[in-house]
Design a protein around this nucleic acid. Structure first.
Lengths: 117, 117
DNA sequence: TCCATATTTCACCGATAGATGAATTATATG
DNA sequence: CATATAATTCATCTATCGGTGAAATATGGA
């Protein structure tokens, strides 16, 4: 990942409303949620939410598809993974203890369901 | 980690100069680097760098200590770990494949040196 | 076709971020 | 004490961000 893409992704997430939206979509999984459902759950006005989703989308963090009169947004898990990987690069230059908690978190939520060989 | 702390941490990193500074400090390890050395390596003016370091410091991402006429900055690896952990929370609601690459990265750089039991 | 619903786009305004030159503080050395 | 170096603080200016009301676009149903 390039520095500038990381900066725009971090900038997209560096906002209370947008971070809440992104986390909600992460929790919702790959099937995503319609914009209106996001607005209702987080109590955000439609036009404000639209601007937020547009910023997250331009940063590559969410995808959108139309389904009838709804537009479904979903977290882009690949982009999320790329960003976190970028932030972790070289994290162990002198401090291997940094990664241990992360491995624990990732393991707790994933390894049980889909173990890494 | 609270949402607002995550937002301020992400905001601190969402800047080309500051992200470069943070990554350099991460690579430098816990012993850190003097401000002037950071400025020289990244070609940033001293006052601009000072503002950047101040923002990273207020977000809790770097620490500072004076050593003679130098002020040594170091990445706060605990805060970094907390932030990444926060971003990964609930990441597997429906997509366990998200975490696999992260585990791989973390494992590659850490497990060899300090295996998680 | 007409209307209701879902979502976006637009124009505007106030607030905040970011860079800079100049001045200031702190430390070491002769 | 005088001077040079390291780093910060301050004042200022410009650019961008973020939210809002109003209007526009798109879809489905009567």
């Amino acid at each position: 990942m390039e520095l500038n893409l990381a900066v725009s992704s971090l900038g997209a997430l560096a906002h209370e409303g947008r971070l809440s939206v992104f986390r909600l979509l992460v929790q919702a999984g790959p099937s995503g949620l319609p914009a209106g459902e996001v607005a209702r759950r987080l109590d955000i006005r439609p036009n404000t939410l639209s601007a937020s989703l547009n910023i997250l989308n331009h940063a590559g963090l969410v995808t959108s598809r139309r389904d009838g009169r709804w537009i479904i947004y979903a977290a882009n898990f690949g982009a999320m993974s790329d960003l976190l990987t970028f932030l972790m690069e070289d994290c162990c230059g002198g401090a291997p203890e940094v990664c241990a908690p992360l491995i624990a978190v990732a393991s707790a939520c994933c390894l049980a369901a889909d173990p890494v060989s």
